[in-house]
């Protein structure tokens, strides 16, 4: 088994950059903020974090930043995640399992539709039609 070095990592990054440059990342900038307080960690926020990283990386979504924060005050609905994308309301999702995290990437971030059954911070009335389109 070969133990990787930092130089290996730099080389991989360079090759990956070339790969990403060939994809359409739509030029948007956004943030995924994962609640990693005691409640979040206990409820499995790290699995959600891993799923976001994996799915965003898979989609080459280099303009979406992944951050972690402390408790968002919604301990009953952990793991909670706030998603901020241009042209969409800042949205807090609750009970974000790994599967839900992948759904948020594909529906909210890529398709611009809210994942209605996991929205915990209700959006304003003027974006309700968007929610309706996103809800099942």
């Amino acid at each position: 088994m070969k133990k990787l070095t930092l130089q290996d990592l730099r080389d991989l990054r360079e090759r990956k950059k070339a790969e990403i440059a060939r994809r359409d990342t739509s030029g948007k900038t956004g943030e995924v903020i994962i609640g990693m307080g005691t409640c979040g960690i206990a409820a499995g926020a790290r699995a959600a974090f891993d799923a976001f990283v994996e799915e965003l990386d898979k989609g080459g979504l280099t303009h979406v930043v992944v951050k972690q924060t402390g408790c968002m005050g919604l301990c009953y609905s952990e793991p909670t995640v706030e998603v901020r994308m241009p042209g969409m309301p800042a949205t807090v999702y609750g009970t974000v399992t790994a599967d839900v995290a992948r759904k948020i990437v594909n529906e909210h971030i890529l398709a611009g539709r809210l994942v209605g059954d996991h929205v915990f911070d209700k959006p304003a009335a003027d974006i309700a039609p968007t929610l309706a389109r996103g809800a099942k």
């Binding site: 088994m1 133990k3 990787l4 930092l6 130089q7 290996d8 990592l9 730099r10 991989l12 990054r13 990956k16 990403i20 891993d50 976001f52 990283v53 994996e54 965003l56 990386d57 080459g60 979504l61 280099t62 979406v64 930043v65 992944v66 951050k67």
Partner: peptide, 29 residues
């Protein structure tokens, strides 16, 4: 700081995916 220098900001999913692979490799070793 060394990892960020190698792969870019550690808030970028692509960078984090590479770091994950790197750390898993170190753990395997």
């Amino acid at each position: 700081d060394e990892l960020a220098e190698a792969v870019g900001p550690l808030t970028d999913a692509g960078a984090l995916a590479l770091v994950r692979m790197f750390v898993e490799n170190q753990e395997s070793a």
